[in-house]
Write a protein that binds this DNA or RNA. Structure first.
Length: 641
RNA sequence: GCCGCCGUAGCUCAGUGGUAGAGCACGGGCCUCGUAAGCCCGGGGUCGCGGGUUCAAAUCCCGCCGGCGGCUCCA
């Protein structure tokens, strides 16, 4: 059946079925009330109550779709705001959004905090709003009408937002007596948000600007099914067990001793110190193999150095300073100025570029107390810091090499990654230093390297530093919070400040191009991510203890000692557990300590000259010769290439 | 730094005005064991620190130190 003159509107349902739309009708009327949350109409997200009047395709999204989930949480945020306004009519609405794992809404509460009892009340009220099944309507108003509406309702913050908007017409969403300024889209009814849980309250400044009114922000989660909410809450509980702040001290990796030693300073316990050394050795070797030269720079310097670099001007707040014989000194917050001094130790020719310096450089920064977080954000940390000095022509191949080096290093830890490319704000080019041509070349070089190596990335306009564009790589912690590890930053600024030059072919002096780069970022932060990523079950090459020998009884101790000795002699990190405890108890201890292999030896093994091997989490693998076992350990180390 | 919450044994926590408790861990003894907790006994705390209220403070109030969740900032 072909109707040539009819509008063709195809609707794809979440289950993949395709049905036909009908001009003039609401999407909702065609698909029914129990299907989907929101629609993507010719690539644009719209309410299900949208009237179909354009030809094209409509995709109905459910909670499994990222956008569907986002809208679900957006409506949950509105229900939160609705509940708060019903319980506390005087409180003023701020803003509310979905987030990556839930939603929030913030309110001006006349400096009164929400208590946990308040949260329970609000949660109950939200359930009531959900059960009342209010239809959610989108209303278009002129901006002036909207200002009038919110002024009458005492919503000063909404009025402020409206006054800053340029649109002549704005959308308002309505559910029951509640109205909010919102672009939408939203679910079609409050009853679709089934199960909610408010998680925490915190305060923020209005628009995030210090000095603005203090808002109370409530965070929550919501799900269409009870089981999903239960699973999520259970996942939060499980996450606590992987938290590096819990596992770090427990696995004897690090501790902070905050109360006596001060916050944000990491003490490396023996097992952690061993792992750190393994990682440092790996990093040094792989950098040497990739054309870097090792350097060391002192931990303190006269502030003159940081006046030249500009750190005193732009970074003073974060620097620890003190006096020596009437001269002002600072503890180094960054390694770059030192590396530039080394570059400038003599006149450089284009023939010796690129020069690549590498240092495991320990720096100290006076981070505000409120931002410190386990070993992920600290005041003293060691960066795998490198600086590349090259000519503009070499930029592209240097960046490509850096992407490759990053991949090699991340592979050693089984880390997958995607990148963020930060470029200039094209509207505000004058904010940045350096000339247009350099910037374009640099931004292109960064993007091309990512594309050539097929690294997925996002582009962030206006996120570049004033001195150059950059590539950053983030990892998420156990609660989904993002932490920056890798950074590759181009710098047009420091070479000029320090007059870091090279003599080119034509015998003229030119400014060198400088790349700042840290691959794992900092050892402390990297360990936080590493611990949470593996939940303490480190890969074999990193495990501080790779195997423990368990003699079944005292009578077999001699054979156990022989095995232990042989493994030691072959560089296996092995322990002998000859405590007079039951075998089961000692196996349990080894599992809890997350030791990868347990080697049980008894009369049977002594007779055959072998070992019984038990693998962490997998159980008994049966017997094996000692040489075969040594081979397994040896093969676990990452290749350095 | 800001706002809220929190701080009891090495760890996880119970105890809300009347002389500090449990489990795990630790020490001792018995047990000599075949793939995740054998049994018994014991030591251990100026209840974060300082001040105040009270006949009496882990408990109530104030200040400080530290932690947690966010905001802002960052590797």
């Amino acid at each position: 059946m072909y109707l040539v003159n009819r509008l063709v509107i195809k609707i794809r349902l979440p289950n993949g079925r395709i049905i036909e739309g009908e001009k003039g009708k609401r999407i909702l009327d065609v698909i029914g009330y129990n299907i989907g949350l929101v629609a993507r109409y010719n690539c644009k997200l719209v309410d299900l109550s949208t009237i179909m009047d354009d030809e094209g395709e409509i995709e109905i999204l459910d909670f499994n779709d990222a956008d569907g989930k986002y809208v679900f949480w957006h409506t949950a945020a509105h229900i939160l705001a609705h509940a708060v306004k019903e319980l506390y009519p005087d409180y003023k609405l701020g803003i509310g959004h979905p987030t990556e794992n839930g939603f929030f809404y913030e309110f001006y509460t006349f400096e009164k905090p929400f208590t946990s009892e308040d949260l329970s009340r609000i949660e109950e009220k939200m359930q009531e709003i959900i059960s009342k099944n209010y239809p959610i309507k989108r209303i278009m108003l002129s901006r002036d009408k909207a200002i009038e509406l919110f002024k009458n309702r005492g919503e000063d913050f909404k009025v402020e937002l409206l006054n800053e908007m340029s649109e002549e017409e704005v959308s308002i969403y309505e559910q029951g007596s509640f109205r909010d300024l919102c672009r939408g889209p939203h679910l079609s009814s409050t009853s679709i948000v089934k199960h909610i849980k408010l998680l925490s309250v915190s305060s923020t400044y209005w628009k995030g600007i210090e000095g603005n009114p203090s808002m109370q922000r409530i965070y929550g989660v919501a799900f269409p099914e009870k089981k999903m909410l239960d699973d999520y809450l259970k996942m939060l509980e499980e996450a606590k067990k992987r938290d590096h702040r819990f596992l770090g001290p427990k696995l004897e990796i690090f501790d902070l001793f905050e109360e006596v030693a001060g916050p944000g300073l990491v003490y490396w316990l023996p097992k952690g110190a061993l792992m750190r050394r393994l990682i440092e050795d790996f990093l040094v070797k792989i950098h040497l193999k990739n054309g870097y030269q090792l350097v060391y720079t002192p931990h303190i310097a006269r502030i003159k150095l940081y006046e030249i670099s500009g750190h005193i001007k732009y970074y003073k707040e974060n620097m620890f300073m003190f006096d020596i014989e009437n001269n002002k000194y600072a503890i180094k917050p960054m390694n770059c100025p030192g590396h530039i001094l080394i570059y400038k130790s003599r006149k450089r020719s284009y023939k010796e570029l690129p020069l690549r310096f590498f240092e495991l450089g320990t720096v100290y920064r006076n981070e505000k107390s409120g931002v410190l977080h386990g070993s992920l954000r600290v005041r003293g940390f060691t960066q795998d810091d490198g600086h590349i000095f090259c000519t503009p022509e070499q930029l592209e191949s240097e960046i490509l090499n850096l992407i490759d080096l990053t991949t090699k290093i991340m592979n050693a830890f089984n880390f997958k990654f995607s990148a963020k490319l930060s470029i200039r704000d094209p509207m505000n080019k004058e904010k940045y230093m350096g000339n247009d041509e350099d910037w374009e070349k640099a931004e292109k070089a960064l993007a091309r390297a990512l594309e050539l190596r097929k690294i997925p990335y996002t582009v962030e306009e206006g996120e570049a530093a004033f001195y150059g564009p950059k590539i950053d790589i983030f990892m998420t912690d156990v609660l989904g919070r993002k932490w920056q590890l890798t950074t590759i930053q181009l710098d047009f600024n420091l070479p000029r400040r320090f007059k870091a030059m090279y003599v080119d072919k034509d015998n003229t002096e030119k400014y060198t191009v400088m790349i700042h780069r840290a691959i794992i970022g900092s050892i402390e932060r990297f360990f936080g991510i590493l611990i949470e990523h593996f939940g303490g079950d480190f890969p074999l090459w990193l495990a501080p203890t790779q195997a423990v020998v368990l003699p079944i009884s005292e009578s077999i101790l001699d054979y156990a000692r022989q095995i232990y000795r042989k493994l030691m002699d072959n560089d296996v990190r092995v322990e002998l557990d000859d405590r007079p405890l039951t075998l089961n108890k000692r196996i349990r201890d080894a599992e809890l300590k997350k030791i990868p292999y347990v080697l049980v030896v008894g009369e049977r093994e002594k007779q055959s000259g072998k070992i019984a091997v038990r693998k962490r989490k997998e159980g008994n693998l049966g017997t094996m010769s000692i040489d075969d076992f040594i081979e397994i350990i040896k093969k676990s180390y990452p290749k350095i290439e």
